[in-house]
Amino acid sequence: MTANLGKDLTGLEHLTPEQIRLILDTAEPFKEVSERPIKKVPALRGKTIVNLFFEASTRTRISFEFAEKRLSADTVNVAATGSSVSKGETLVDTAKNLEAMRIDMVVIRHPSSGVAAFLGQRIRSNVINAGDGKHEHPTQALLDLLTIRDKHGKIEGLKVCLVGDVLHSRVARSNIWGLTKLGAQVGVCGPHTLMPRGLEELGVKFFPRIEEAIEWADVLNILRLQLERMEKGFIPSLREYYRVWGVTPERLERAPRAITIMHPGPMNRGVEIDSRVADGPHSVILDQVTNGVAVRMAVLYLLAGGRPELADAAKRGAE
């Protein structure tokens, strides 16, 4: 059994299905911790974790911070603005300086793809990717997987369609890796200009029209339309995007089955998703947020433990 994640979590691409299931199964009991009157367990007492955010983030940063605090770790938040980063210090220097203060883990978000893995190779601390450029956002995909598994009782065999800007989305990329590894069928739907090449090689179906995606899917994971895409000419206008691609109750009504609605947030209501859908009976959007804390607790817990060289000695003395 691969009861080990290694040193870093940089993406789902290189994880085995067993490792992904290990994280999801470990997240399960952590849900209950957040329901306790005292929402805290001492598992990571004495660990120091730095949240290094080079990009704006509310949900992900707060979710990580709650996860860290509920495990009793000590946390420090570093944002790019107002730190030595804005004075021209390199990323590795920033991280090495933090490490000189004896930290144990770094959670990093950065606009450049591949930064998390790059950093992980250069520092001793555990590195967790909280989103790197267009590359991956593994904990988001893990919480999506957990939410799908909660709702449907399984992932294997389900049809999950990612809708919208797949090209620029690290959430989509991590979801495609995670879903395919766990045996789901994955579809994508959105404007041609926002679709990456080479999806067929991963076994991903392309739906040119939202109606076809709705006809096919059990789950729609509706990606956020980044508004700056419009300025760069990928889409003509927000109104037109809503008219052609927007997920509306009228469109969902024609579906042969009830479709689970997901969105990684923040939502543009009335653009990629209609408010009546976002707040509707099949929306699990807020469950995703709740599960985010549990999944991040599981990842922190699994990465923090497991020093195999000590484990053997300890097991000999254990009960």
């Binding site: 199964d25 470990t26 990571l44």
Partner: peptide, 10 residues
């Protein structure tokens, strides 16, 4: 935790 590692199923 550091010596025996995380217990996967809690």
């Amino acid at each position: 935790l550091e010596t025996v590692g995380p217990k996967p199923v809690i």
